[in-house]
Design a binder for these strands. Structure first.
Lengths: 118, 118, 118, 118
DNA sequence: GTGGTCTAGACCACA
DNA sequence: GTGGTCTAGACCACA
């Protein structure tokens, strides 16, 4: 699991970690019930403060992407279909929003789709 | 020129001002060589500090969307086709990037386009 | 006499007018005793406020580049050799200053002169 | 890193800070990846407002002289050869421009170079 | 601790 | 009136 961080991005590090882990879940690289690295371990690997990783894991837990068993570590949740569906529909909505903006500029949906094929 | 600000957004106010002005330029509401409000005037109208508007205008100048003449005010640049084209192609590229992500999840371009039509 | 103004320059308009007139004097385009445009006239021609031209003329008078005869208009001074010499030596000194900076960067005078020939 | 400020100069303070830092980069005093002082720290050291230093750092970042990592500080960019080359060629061009002006006054390049040697 | 954003407001030069 | 610069300082998120 290779997590790329961009320190110059406006997106905070902890959120980038969340995004990356969710991405691997959705891609199937991280599978249900699979254990993910311990907070301290990942922090060292990424060269960030353990609190930053902790914050990411807490948020992932809240979103039910992972489950943390106090002394046993953190695991990908059993049921991740919700996550996948949510991610997918989010992305579809993002595209729709951009298309709406383009249409306001007088570009038709057909033109946009044609441009997408190049 | 109606500029809407969202104080809760993560996008800073000065950037929202930039976005709104660029939007009006692209929409053709603000035309080449047209004078835009004085910094202080817009600041009062928006209820923000002049420095915040100044920062937006500085960035717009850097992007060659406007031209500022000391003591004479700020004007939409003469040539804004670059801006319009850039904006459009940026948006197309954003869509392409999201589509690529979706494809990595095993969703074909055809499926995506079908979803966009709902 | 074609005076070019750059409204985006940090150099104030009145100073640009001074520079341009001095340039024409040094170039011999404006000759000793030659009459120069009336303040109001030049202001209209340049599209600037008469006060701005007035400020330039006052400064030129102070530098003895021009002489203003209250109701008769403004004239290039009789003796302008000082002006020419001063301008020339100023420029030589500017070059020397830049060369000194380049030398501090480890570039020898010989190298600099070679680069100047390209 | 000793930064000298001239409060009487027409060059704004933030620009003097930029120039000084660039000078130290070009001189090799500040090296790639080296951390530069925190905004507040430098502000205190120079006796200026943090916003002024911030403005300088922003511009340096835009010019890719430094890289700023939120919460981690600012660092000299990894690749600064462009900066050095640009600075050098800028200075050469400045000299060329002045020489051109002098030539217009009827002074030959040879004469100019001779004057430079005194 | 570090940067990012913003307010409030002053003072200046210039036009 | 218009922009340019700067101070003083607050509050925030993040690490």
């Amino acid at each position: 699991m290779l997590i790329n961080l961009n320190y110059q991005s406006r997106t905070p590090i902890y959120e980038q970690i969340i995004d990356e882990i969710e991405r691997y879940v959705v891609l199937g690289v991280l599978k249900p019930n699979e254990q993910i690295p311990a907070i301290r371990e990942l922090a060292i690997q990424l060269g960030v403060n353990p609190n930053t990783v902790k914050k990411a894991y807490e948020e992932l837990e809240r979103k039910k992407v992972i489950v943390t068993l106090s002394t046993k570590g953190s695991y990908i949740a059993t049921n991740i279909t919700d996550i996948i569906n949510e991610k997918t529909s989010n992305k579809i909505n993002e595209i729709k929003a951009i298309i709406k903006e383009l249409e306001q500029l007088g570009i038709s949906k057909e033109e946009i789709i044609k441009k997408l094929e190049n």
